[in-house]
Design a protein around this nucleic acid. Structure first.
Lengths: 123, 123
DNA sequence: CACGCTGTCTGCATTATACAGACAGGATGC
DNA sequence: GCATCCTGTCTGTATAATGCAGACAGCGTG
């Protein structure tokens, strides 16, 4: 796990994003015990409150259970009904991301293979 | 063009992102004249400085020429050599975006078809 | 019953954002 | 000639977000 303090996205969101990816992909299964906010903060070179903010975000999404003595535990979570327009918002963000990559000079062929790989990983 | 002031991304970045998508896709061709910062700001319900910040961002990327009297004009721009690791950064952001969409409840099949559509649009 | 470990809360310094308004320069109209 | 208008730019400011330091609260353990 890697955090870039210079990035536009705040550190707590980067932490939440990377943990969410691990949760959705099944690398973190229900019942798993996460590192304490201070442990992970020390590991990342951040303040414990920054990690706590990320944990609270994932708890609000239903992924984690936070308790005083127990720490952060992965919950069972059924996929929610997608809010209206969620699919369209994804399409817009995907187009934006592709435009940024093409503007940075990444060839279209490389983007296509990355997209095809993503399609396969979703199966 | 639509701006959401409540979104996490700042307004000037949303403007730049949407204009960049239009530039990369060829909807805005070299020589085209953009709306003045005040015109577009009025159209979006924002301050002219917010639009100017977006224009400066695109100018720094080589897309626009900004001049006092002339306004904002689309430049010819050869795609730069992609910085090292740019392709990998794209892959990471794509995975993050997909994880977020799946967490929001968008079914994998919908994501796959959106990805396939994006592959075709890149040809 | 003191200690240690957990997440939570309050307060603070810094930075980013969006805005209001003044400025600069060059074309246009009288 | 010269006022006027339209362009992007610059300065200053109020507000919110961010990351951090440190204190607090609950609960198991020795």
């Amino acid at each position: 796990m890697r955090i870039d303090l210079e990035a536009a996205a705040p550190a707590w969101r980067q932490i939440a994003d990377q943990l969410r990816a691990a949760l959705v992909s099944g690398q973190l299964r229900p019942g798993a015990q996460l590192a304490s906010v201070r442990e992970l903060a020390l590991d990342l070179g951040l303040n414990h409150n920054t990690v706590a903010e990320a944990y609270r975000q994932l708890a609000a999404e239903g992924f984690l259970q936070l308790e005083r003595r127990t720490g952060a535990v992965v919950l069972e979570r059924k996929s929610p009904r997608p809010p209206a327009g969620e699919q369209e918002r994804f399409a817009v963000r995907l187009r934006t991301l592709l435009a940024e990559a093409r503007a940075a000079g990444v060839p279209a062929s490389a983007l296509q293979s990355a997209l095809r790989r993503a399609v396969e990983e979703l199966s």
